[in-house]
């Protein structure tokens, strides 16, 4: 009886980690099919912290502007001030669990930060970095 309860609870708790792993691996396969090489967490971190200049406004843009330097903490949307939940999956297990969401946010946020869509390699590197957090 007790073992059953513990087992079910453990399974339920494991779902986010399982879905996270499966979402990332699905995307990694897709990015590789698009020509990406092996993914590097170090390269992902470098891209994450790099500052870009917006061509139109001349403003500085980078991922930490909204997500803050400490990804275990809440961030803040640069123009609306809306609170952004922590990015680190260890703090926020909902992160990196849905392929559709990951794709949507990569498009939105790469376009805002870099002024263009990210390459398959860049996206894979950033995922490799984020999943270690």
């Amino acid at each position: 009886m007790n073992i059953k309860v513990i087992g079910i609870t453990a399974l339920l708790l494991a779902i986010p980690f399982y879905t996270q792993a499966s979402a990332i691996s699905e995307l990694e396969t897709e990015y590789k099919s698009q020509g990406a090489e092996a993914f590097s967490a170090a390269a992902g971190e470098a891209l994450w912290t790099k500052t870009f200049i917006d061509a139109k406004s001349g403003d500085k843009r980078s991922c930490p502007i909204c997500h803050t330097a400490d990804l275990a903490k809440e961030g803040k949307h640069a123009s609306t001030g809306k609170v952004i939940k922590p990015m680190a999956p260890s703090v926020n297990p909902q992160r990196l669990t849905e392929v559709k969401k990951i794709k949507k946010w990569f498009v939105r946020n790469c376009k805002w930060t870099l002024g263009r869509e990210c390459t398959a390699q860049e996206k894979g590197d950033v995922l490799a970095f984020l999943k270690t957090l």
Binding site: K56, S79, K103, K104, V107, R108, K111, W112
Partner: peptide
């Protein structure tokens, strides 16, 4: 959308 691509 206000300088962002929502990609919906």
């Amino acid at each position: 959308h206000f300088a962002e691509d929502l990609f919906l």
